[in-house]
Design a protein around this nucleic acid. Sequence first.
RNA 1: GCCCGGGUGGCGAAACUGGUAAACGCAGCGGGCUUAAAACCCGCAGCCGCGAGGCUUGUCGGUUCGAUCCCGACCCCGGGCACCA
Length: 905
Amino acid sequence: MANQGLGAPPCYNLRIAPRRARTPRNPMDPQYQPKSLEPAVQKAWEDGKAFAAPDASDKPKYYDVGMLPYPSGKLHMGHVRNYSINDALAHYLRMKGFNVLQPMGWDAFGLPAENAAMANGVPPAKWTWDNIAYMKKQLRSLGFSIDWSREVATCSPDYYRWNQWLFLRMREKGIAYRRTGTVNWDPVDQTVLANEQVIDGKGWRTGATVEKREIPMWYLRISQYADELVDALDGLGWPEQVKQMQRNWIGRSHGVAFTLPYAPATAARMGDSGGPRPDGAGPVGLKVYTTRADTIMGITFAAVAAEHPLAAEAAKGNPALAAFIEECKKGGVMEADLATMEKKGMPTGLHVLHPFTKEPVEVWVGNYVLMGYGEGAVMAVPGHDERDFAFAKKYGLAIKPVIDVGGQPYSTDAWQPWYEQAGTCVNSGKYDGLDQQAAIDAVAADLAAMGLGAKRKQFRLRDWGISRQRYWGTPIPMILCPACGDVPVPDGELPVVLPEDLVPDGSGNPLAKSKAFLECRCPECGGAARRETDTMDTFVDSSWYFMRYTCPGAQAMVDARADYWMPMDQYIGGIEHAILHLLYARFWTKVMRDMGLVKFDEPFRNLLTQGMVLNHIFSRRTAKGGIEYFAPEEIEAKADAEGRVTGATLKADGSAVEYNGIGTMSKSKRNGVDPQDLIDRYGADTARLYVMFASPPTDTILWSDSSVEGSHRFLRRLWKLVHDHLAAGGPVAARAAGELARPLKDLRYKLHRTIDKVGDDYGRRLQFNTAIAAVMELLNALGEARDDTPAGRAVAQEVLESAVLLLSPIVPHIATALWAELRPGTRLVDQPWPAVDASALVQETVELVVQVNGKLRGHITVPAAASKEEIEKIALASEAAVKFMEGRPAKKVVVVPGRLVNIVV
RNA sequence: GCCCGGGUGGCGAAACUGGUAAACGCAGCGGGCUUAAAACCCGCAGCCGCGAGGCUUGUCGGUUCGAUCCCGACCCCGGGCACCA
């Protein structure tokens, strides 16, 4: 408008729409318009198949996978965070010359689909496939460099047939087997409940008190691989934290298993003499396992789980005990609940004998003894085991200290953490004075000599129960024949296809009511038979999907292409999967290896566990006693001065709701944040930049959308810097190495330091927030060093090209557009990662900090090559040193080259 | 309860191997540009103190010339605990 009226009658000017000067300019838009720019860039990638990964290449391969999403309906911020990290690495490694594969798929079986079906009557299959379609659109709009030709949905028969096939192979090898297991039972709905569906010991829909129930289930013998699963952790490029969690989970311990012989009356009751068996099968009595055999002289009672056979025997003719055992069946099976329960018990009236003193020891039933670990029975040493101690205090049982820890005084008044530390045996007869290991060895040897026991390696890890009494999962390919028993479905009849039109109603598995599915012929005798209606745990689905990505359409479970891509180079997903999913997938891989299907031992070479994206959780009880959740945006929350939420009401009607603290974003708790608003308002690049800049990937973040604006502002600034540079004379050749005057030399120093740092952040540290900050600093420095001379413009060109390349893994759309303008005729996707110019990093002087007694007092500038002695001299002569030494002599001078000088007076 | 993490300005964070605490950004304040607003640009900014200076990384204690970082105890928050995924 500045040239309004120039050379033309004003009346015409009013009619001409674009009143801006029509100077020849770059065809690109001077405004940053992600809405139009991003789809155009995405289309160009798609048309050029820019991210299709060939199954063979001269380049080294890099297989980069994000844990596949559950198709819950919409993406949430956790997904954006996860796949933005994956994608940044994928782009970075492509630029570093790797053949990169980044695939995507769907963990499509699971409970939420059944819940949705119950809520609105839509079959789980339709709900799931609709969600997949929507979420795929969202992922595409985020512009991730995914090779979509390899997509896997675990609910498609082409995929789950191989779950069934491998299950049958495992059964043949005895890895899959059937036995009873304990489940949560809702007595009102007459159905098995998932742990998640049990809230405070009650069914989530009915509010009824949950009970434990024993039912037959299929198990996979993961315990057979326990040693290898522990030992192989050492060689993995995983966070130490995750390896430690897996080690503790597997819980390999070295202890002693032995028998506490029955006392004579008990032996008679148990129908046995109490002596060694004539058949040599070992002595009869109560079998226990302990890692603390050194405390054996401190036994004051024994305790068994409520489910232990001895408890059942003792309950005969003891109504009080029978009632207690019955009471122990109340409540769910969750370990957290069992462990926090008040310790309760009851004497059985039965006795065993201490193996060495032969004194009678009373056997109790204790609700804190787990049937699933060891022998389901323990020798109780309240003096040195916290749980035994609490139990003994409650029931007035004797507490006998038998370990001395550094002479500290023992008191039975209250438990002290050091009571369970290793020490020296006391009050232990012949073992007195022995240290822990010597005592364990001696006790084990004596028990062995008596034929009562031996050292044993024990694991905490239990076999993997895969049976689920649910519809929306992989059918277990077994047939139950009244004549032949359990009969496997023949390979030729796989897959056993899950019908997709059933709608669960909350009263058990609809497969069990579907004649079409249920009724079949026995493959062995041809008689009428029934199909197994249990389906597989969805962790089966996620135990090998990453192998199937590598060989889409394979006629076997996997083919040779899996050997090219696997093992995976980088796996990224939430820390909540640190144990179960990652352990099961490792186990599954080893089984496949032992069957000759794959050649590697471990599936995931490197692992990044991203922190959770957390949000507030609000809920309230329903009239029936169940629970319902509310999204944070439906809530008006009140907070105290420290920002803690103290109360909350529903915006709609002002009714009170309960605040449940903060927790991970999930569909079931309704506290996920849909990133779609962000994408619609600011574009994918801003959303991606924001999640990457907010914090390091391993940190948890509490959701807040307040600083998104800043990320968008930065991209606009970048856009403007490039366009201002080009407007001042078009693209020029970037600065090559060579001598420059001071401000430009400093700018190039900053540039190449930044290239070095950003590469290190992407490639080694996997920390992106600091990489982005470094580029921000670089662009700030460019803005300050405005220089329109040819040399200045050449350095500016180099800085801008580099900044675009450095940011491109995180914001690929804007980077693609800006690159096309900075280097017309070339494409960003063809560019390598920028190289560091070592000559730009040479400096003549360095600035050091001067400290007196460890406190910062001033700065000195010294030649980069100065020796420690020279630096010390300059520092002592500096103004700051003279002032703060106050004439005192230096007792000591610490020189840290490149950092500081500390003068101690 | 057990196992694994975390706690730094008003907020997100940085400090990578024990060496300048608070880079980079958000929010804020002051100024410029504008008729005005938006956008943009410049500047200020941990706390106390007029200042010199002192204090500050959940709390308390220790090691060290020097501690956000190592050690001990405690408090709080998150993840997992085997049928949520």
